[in-house]
């Protein structure tokens, strides 16, 4: 059987909110090392890679590897039925047709069970090569979300230019243009407020706002976001998920006509 328990459902609720805009369904690969999801959005522009390690769960049991096709829209609805402080347990039997979500209140006086039908999915797995990126920017996730939101008013794409001076986000459209420059922070009281730039070579890439604005739905998961970029390859936008894992979004850049 498969059983995975988290003491607080908040993490799983945030994970679902972070993927639901991009994915309508996805296969959850469960093994004794944890839960992995890799799925592209419908337009095959972006890819979501989610990894939750078994040792990050309060209880984790997976007797045999399982691939469970889940409807993300339904799963999001179910997770919204849990209070953030509720314990959440995912349970499925071998060769399952269904998965059960069990929410238990901290006082243990309320126990809710939701059963969701699994779906058969065609799987298309992509091999993501290990890449040394020219620029890696770590910055406050709320700042990145704010920049994406603000610049989206000006155009449908954001250009990210990273040099040793700092990182510049810009957008241009019919009504004008905007740019926001961030320099590496010299000294900060709190690590999560730092902007840190690791640059081997300058990079300038352009990305569709629509996808960036979906990625920033992961902001509640982590105070910092890591952006990894190299010329002519997809952006990696990564959020840690506490001590349990991470979510990575890959986004194909715009190509000059």
């Amino acid at each position: 059987m498969f059983e995975a328990r988290l003491a607080q459902s908040a993490i799983l609720k945030k994970v679902l909110e972070a993927v639901k805009d991009l994915l309508s369904e996805a296969t959850f690969e469960c093994s004794d090392s944890g839960i992995m999801v890799q799925a592209m959005d419908n337009a095959h522009v972006s890819l979501v890679s989610l990894n939750l390690r078994s040792d990050g769960f309060d209880k984790f049991r997976c007797d045999r590897n399982l691939s469970m096709g889940m409807n993300i829209t339904t799963m999001t609805k179910i997770l919204r039925c849990a209070s953030s402080e509720d314990t959440v347990t995912l349970r499925a039997w071998d060769n399952p047709d269904n998965i059960i979500f069990i929410f238990e209140s901290p006082s243990k006086e309320k126990l809710a069970e939701y059963e969701m039908k699994l779906i058969n999915m065609d799987q298309e797995h992509l091999g993501i090569p290990e890449t040394m990126y020219s620029c890696v920017v770590k910055m406050p996730s709320a700042e990145f979300a704010r920049i994406c939101k603000d610049l989206s008013q000006f155009g449908e794409a954001i250009t990210i230019a990273c040099s040793k001076e700092g990182v510049k986000f810009s957008a241009a459209g019919d009504y004008g243009n905007a740019n926001i420059k961030l320099a590496q922070t010299a000294e900060v009281d709190k690590e999560e407020e730092a902007v840190c730039i690791d640059m081997q070579e300058p990079v300038k890439l352009t990305f569709a706002c629509r996808y960036l604005n979906s990625f920033v739905k992961a902001t509640p998961l982590c105070a910092q976001v890591k952006l990894s970029m190299s010329a002519d390859v997809p952006l990696v936008c990564e959020y840690s998920i506490g001590e349990i894992g991470h979510i990575r979004y890959y986004l194909a850049p715009k190509i000059d006509d």
Partner: peptide, 14 residues
């Protein structure tokens, strides 16, 4: 602002 690339043109399908 250019043509939108597809992610599966960058990564090999396994």
């Amino acid at each position: 602002t250019g043509t939108q690339g597809r992610i599966d043109s960058f990564f090999k399908i396994l």
